[in-house]
Computed example of a mutant assay.
Amino acid sequence: MPPSPPPPDWLQAARDAWAWRGQQRPPFAVVPGPGQVSVWDFPRPPRLAPDTREVVLRWGTLEVARTRRALCVLETAHPPSFYLPWADVARHLLQPAGGGSYCEWKGPARYWNLVDGGRQLPGVAWSYPQPLAGAEALADRVAFYLGALSGTIDGQPLRPQPGGFYGGWITPELVGPFKGAPGSEGW
């Protein structure tokens, strides 16, 4: 397979804007204790890592997803975003939402609404059907904002990444601080 062409200048500029890239922790980072992981040790560009712990997502009492085949995007300063295989998601509950966004590492995102009868959660999920080079494994997966959903990983509750823009999930072993919290705009 021939090598990918270099990214356009605007994309490279967005990638170069990040000061923290996982090689060292900033002085304000929490030092991890035994069994803990610092999000400041995650790389940029992000690394995709399989996670075989059981992930369960619910909307009230309705199960939205259950898998042991999550793929985590590990990116400096962020709790991981968990991308679940479409086969392990109640796909009939998802309908395309309008709009989109562009990640300098993953490419163009598509958004999804969660719909059950008359209930709807707009823009609660996103996917990368045509990811950039290096993120190809995300093509057949979907990620969810926790917000109105509840989730567990191996029975332990998940917490949403602060701020509402990013979709990371805070798992019990993670220490931050996490991007998205007030004052984190410059990270």
Results as ranks from 00 to 15, higher is better:
Y128K: 04
L57R: 09
S4L: 01
A77K: 00
G22V: 01
P26V: 01
Y145S: 11
C72P: 00
G167M: 08
D116G: 11
V30G: 02
R68I: 08
Y166N: 13
G107F: 03
V56F: 07
A133T: 06
Q130R: 13
V37F: 03
G151D: 13
S127E: 12
A109L: 02
P6A: 10
G123R: 14
P122R: 13
G123C: 12
T52L: 06
P8M: 05
G22L: 05
P108S: 14
F28Q: 13
G167P: 07
P50G: 14
I153C: 13
I153E: 05
P80N: 09
W20T: 00
L121K: 10
A13F: 01
L149G: 10
L11H: 08
P129T: 08
G100D: 08
P162R: 05
W59C: 15
Y83Q: 11
V37K: 02
A139I: 01
P34I: 01
Y166E: 13
P182D: 12
Q156R: 15
L146C: 07
G147K: 12
A70E: 09
W20I: 00
W59V: 14
G180R: 09
W59D: 15
I170Y: 03
G33C: 10
W187A: 02
R110P: 00
V175D: 06
P26T: 05
S127V: 06
P80Y: 11
R47T: 07
G60M: 12
R15F: 05
F28W: 14
A181N: 02
V142C: 10
E185Q: 13
L114K: 01
L94P: 03
W169P: 02
R53N: 13
Y102A: 08
P108E: 15
S184Q: 06
V37E: 14
D16N: 14
V73R: 10
F144K: 04
L174S: 07
F82D: 05
V30F: 00
A148W: 00
R69Y: 04
